[in-house]
Amino acid sequence: MRPEFFAQLRSPVPWIVLAVAAVMPFVLPNYYLHIFTITLVYAALASAWNIVGGIAGQISLAHSLFVGCGAMLSSALLVRYGLNMWLGVIVSAAAAAAIGAMISFIDFRFRLGHLSFALITMAFAEMAEIYVTGTEFFGGASGLFLPKDTGDFFAFQFGGGRGAFWAMLAMTALCLLANLAILNSPLGYYLRSIRDNENAAQAIGVGLLRNKTLAMTISAVLTAIVGAIYARYLAFVDPYLLVSPTLTVEIILFATVGGLGSVIGPALGAFLLAPLGEILRGHFGGSLPGLHYFIYGAIVVAVILVSPAGVWPAIVSRLAKRGRQKA
């Protein structure tokens, strides 16, 4: 671990942001708190995805599978067998890790550089949706209802909107921390070397299979846990929301707009776009369904053409330039 990691943790800025965010449930009205919570879900998902997609440069389209694994499997285990949801989360995180590792292995067998990973993960995401919507255990196409949230922490219940917000805030912080830790550790350097040139990385002794699998597993586990908290918050587990490949596309677009490969970027993308989407959906969901996705699509195309690295790196480089001019 490089010393920068600890230096960044000691800086007061992230702690102040966290503290300000933590008092939000006392300030914001319910509707805006809901939007904030959803935004945190996407921020956490985007930054968990960033470990694979941004740092390692492997465009994973399978993350809806991991979200679904965390949300559907832990819910189904609770509803069908009465298994404690904490245990369910552990089981589903382990399942997500196993699937992630398996996908990495298949990708390793079939090497086409960055392309094959996207292809294989997309096939898996489609399979997951078909499988979950057609299996009675997961509630089939109609989904599952979770028991009422009574605030019993030991049953993975957080006591409604506020509790879920704090749980999601903690999870988002954990995902950001994981990104920061990986970027400052040897793993982060291996992954970035793989992203920039797979063959060269292998030639200097970076193990492709090992490092890619590790990145995929970490990302899968984080994503599954976010999925479980999201499911608990929604209380209704809808496969067409949680296992749909469109969810992955959304995550990727947020991360892309914010800036891949950085710690802040993907979360920033979620904070820019997710509230916009929620508000648009709230206002036009009835009359013009799909408008918010249409706008997302337009924004991502525009961002890639104008500032391909994303919003955050553009801000950073502009600030750096201004700093240099002053000095």
Binding site: T246, L253, L260, G290, L291, Y293, G297, V300, V301
Partner: peptide, 27 residues
């Protein structure tokens, strides 16, 4: 404009395009 850059960008761009087309049709 982005041809010849990292393949990831093409994938992201066309995914964005996919969302755009799909929802234009939806609307």
């Amino acid at each position: 404009p982005i041809a010849g850059r990292h393949l990831l960008m093409i994938i992201q761009l066309t995914l964005g395009l996919s969302l755009l087309l799909q929802n234009a049709l939806m609307m």
